[in-house]
Simulated scan of single mutants.
Amino acid sequence: MKTFLLFAALATAALAASPAPSPDLAALQAKPLYQFNESEVGTYLSHLQLTEPELRARIIHLARKNLKQPYELYLLGEAPFETYDPQPLYSLTKSDCLVFTEHTYAMALSRDWSGFMRLLQRIRYREGRIGVVTRNHFTETDWNPSNRWLVRDITTEIGGDKMRRFDQKIDRSKFLLGRYKLTTPIPVELHRETYVPYADVDLAKAHLTDGDCIEIVRGIVKPGMPDNEIFGGSAWIGHVGLAARGPAGELHLIHSIAPEVREETIEQFIARETAHNAEKDAAGKPRLLGFKFLRLEADPLAKLRQLDGLDAPRVTLPSGAVLP
């Protein structure tokens, strides 16, 4: 127990401390972000804040600097503060779709290592309270509302009469018991969500720009039903990435998907995702239904200060201690 407490104390210090003196910037500019160590990340973020004043440009710069980062699912947990999920609080070398998106946003909003770590935990956890129970497990009902200071849902504005709705039953207690053997008395939540069918993605092209968030809705479709009709209301957000504009202004998606982070046009993504729809439907497997679109706020940190106060981002450890 003493060893664990010491480890936790050291990790707390790491969250709050700035990295060691900087390495050579020219060397950092020449190598991919996923090969950086913690000190190099801090140095590069400080440099980027000085040289690129636009938040959206910083987001896309960092996202593209992480192209080809290896993919691995279920990377992060709460170690060393909790042991239910022994994975660490961050990952620089690998990502899954959510880890990539969260890390990119947190880095783009930060000017040093300490700021990045704080913002990352504020994005990952409800009200920045570190813990497996307070982690934003469900994108629709946890991540999106918790990060309303960062992004705003514009799916309804874009979709108009093409928009589709689906209902969900969110049972957090069942999820936490099944995955982490945790008994938690959390009421079941009934939730209604919206998405734009992938066939109508052109509706979004004039609205989205660099740094906006694209969420991919997947579900199970019964063979013989019209395209995009959901069997049994079974649909969910199953993937996430960042919107970017290509050289000719076309809409791109930058996202982490096996085997590595890639950038592709939205049409390329749809073609790949829908290439085997008939086989997926026959096997009862989920497939692409459509998209949700979230607009990056103009000044997320100002929005966050409205929620957390002047000491934003507010991050709380499982012990209840607030990081100074």
Rank of each mutant, 00 (worst) to 15 (best):
H252G: 09
H252Q: 14
H252R: 12
H252P: 02
L253E: 02
I254A: 11
I254G: 05
I254C: 08
I254E: 09
H255Y: 11
H255D: 10
H255I: 01
H255V: 04
H255N: 13
S256K: 04
S256D: 02
S256N: 09
S256M: 11
A258Y: 12
A258I: 09
A258N: 11
A258R: 11
P259I: 01
P259E: 12
P259M: 12
E260W: 11
E260T: 05
V261W: 06
V261A: 15
V261L: 08
V261R: 08
V261Q: 10
V261I: 05
V261F: 06
R262Q: 14
R262N: 12
E264R: 13
E264I: 08
T265K: 07
T265C: 08
I266E: 00
E267D: 15
E267R: 08
Q268I: 04
Q268G: 13
Q268K: 14
Q268E: 15
F269Q: 00
I270Y: 03
I270N: 01
A271H: 10
A271M: 10
R272D: 09
E273T: 04
E273D: 08
T274S: 13
T274E: 05
T274H: 02
A275I: 06
A275W: 01
A275Y: 03
H276C: 00
N277M: 09
N277F: 13
N277H: 09
N277I: 03
A278I: 13
A278H: 12
E279F: 13
E279M: 09
E279Q: 15
E279K: 09
K280H: 10
K280W: 03
D281Y: 03
D281S: 10
A282I: 08
A282P: 08
A283P: 06
A283Q: 12
A283K: 13
A283F: 07
K285P: 04
K285G: 00
R287S: 11
R287G: 15
L288H: 00
L288G: 01
L288P: 07
L289N: 03
G290W: 00
F291N: 02
K292W: 00
K292D: 00
K292C: 01
K292M: 05
F293Y: 12
F293N: 02
L294T: 02
L294Y: 02
L294K: 05
R295S: 08
R295M: 13
L296G: 00
L296E: 05
L296M: 11
L296Q: 03
E297L: 08
E297Y: 05
A298P: 06
A298D: 14
A298C: 02
A298T: 15
D299C: 01
D299Y: 06
D299G: 09
P300S: 11
P300K: 04
P300T: 13
P300Q: 07
P300C: 10
L301T: 12
L301M: 15
A302G: 03
